[in-house]
Amino acid sequence: MRVLLTGAAGSIGRVVTVGLADRGHRVIGLDRVVEPEGFDGPWHSVDCADPDAVASVFEAESPEAVVHLAGHPDEASLPDSLTSHVVTTAALLDAMVENDVQRIVYASSNHAVGRTPRPRDAAAQVGDDLRPRPDTFYGVGKVAAEALLSLYADRYPLDAVSCRIGSFLPQPETTRHLSTWLSHDDCVRMFDAALTAPAPGYAVLYGISANTRRWWDLEPGRRLGYEPVDDAEEFAETVSARSEDEFEAAHVGGPFAGEAFYRPALDRA
């Protein structure tokens, strides 16, 4: 499958481009920066928020699907967050409709539901039927992008999968990560499954590994063929307890749900 992958120079992008290529996909890289050393394939240094530039990439490359990873991975003002996550998604969706591309997989975030209290019952897990509860303007941007994907999946003959990614790291580093970790290999498995699942329509899954202590339900992903293999528990003995652990476990968004991220929505002169 010819896959246009945005944010291809980012931390997730560098892993997924190689992983999807290893699984037989032809990856077309797109990022605002030049291609990383060793990237083997077409590359476009453009801003996803520029609809004309995005349209030109589609015309040049004729992708069959899109993996949308581009976006500022941290908190920003509300307008900046909406541009980074929603406007970029809109530009891609419009180009998809114009070019009859019928699959997009979006790197959403656990912060779309980050204000959800952590389940205290180990048997209770956060599912895909939960109402949006963003913890930051970053989370709001992800919620709004998910809504836009849902709209286009209803309006047009396309499939959209939102992957609410947890903690993407080589290995867990904190107690919270033992619940929220997404390994590099499972990340590739997740995006490959989301690209190839038959007719998902609009769907949400939680981007975590098969963690023994997980807070989020893996069943939405399994319905799409995502079977994670790794478990953060393998690293539990290497993770030291910290004074912040209890606070970070109060909500599923961890520290993003705390007062350190409270700020006005709009920057003023």
Rank of each mutant, 00 (worst) to 15 (best):
L5C: 07
T6F: 09
A8H: 04
A9M: 12
A9C: 14
G10V: 10
S11P: 13
V15L: 11
V18A: 15
L20P: 13
A21R: 12
A21M: 08
A21L: 13
R23F: 15
R23E: 12
G24S: 06
G24I: 01
R26E: 03
G29W: 02
G29C: 07
L30V: 06
D31Q: 07
R32A: 11
V34Y: 14
E35I: 14
F39Y: 15
D40E: 13
G41E: 06
P42A: 08
W43T: 01
V46G: 02
D47H: 11
D47S: 13
C48W: 00
A49S: 10
D50S: 05
A53V: 01
A53H: 00
V54F: 10
A55L: 08
E61M: 02
E64W: 00
V66N: 01
V66I: 02
A70L: 03
G71V: 10
P73Y: 08
A76F: 15
L82P: 10
T83D: 08
T83L: 12
T83E: 01
S84H: 07
V87A: 13
A91Q: 02
L93N: 00
E98F: 04
N99S: 06
V101L: 02
V105N: 03
V105M: 06
S109D: 07
N110K: 09
N110D: 12
H111Y: 11
A112Y: 11
P117V: 08
P117S: 11
R118Y: 13
P119M: 01
R120I: 05
D121E: 10
Q125W: 11
Q125S: 14
D128L: 11
D128P: 07
D129S: 10
L130R: 05
R133Y: 03
P134C: 07
D135T: 10
T136F: 11
Y138E: 00
Y138T: 02
V140A: 06
G141K: 02
A144W: 02
A147Y: 03
L148W: 08
L148T: 01
L148M: 01
L149T: 01
S150G: 15
L151H: 06
D154M: 10
Y156E: 07
L158K: 00
D159A: 05
C163E: 04
Q171H: 12
E173Q: 13
S179P: 04
T180N: 09
W181H: 03
S183M: 09
S183W: 08
S183G: 13
H184Y: 12
C187T: 05
V188W: 08
M190A: 15
A193T: 04
A194Y: 06
A194R: 05
L195H: 05
T196S: 04
T196P: 08
A199N: 10
P200L: 04
L205T: 08
L205C: 15
A210P: 08
N211F: 08
T212P: 07
R214T: 09
R214D: 07
D217N: 05
G221E: 04
R222Y: 15
R223P: 09
D231E: 01
D231R: 05
E234L: 14
F235G: 13
A236M: 08
A236Y: 10
S240H: 04
R242T: 11
E244F: 12
E244Y: 12
F247W: 10
E248K: 09
A250F: 15
P255A: 13
F256Y: 09
F261Q: 11
F261I: 05
R263E: 14
R263Y: 15
P264E: 02
R268I: 12
R268S: 14
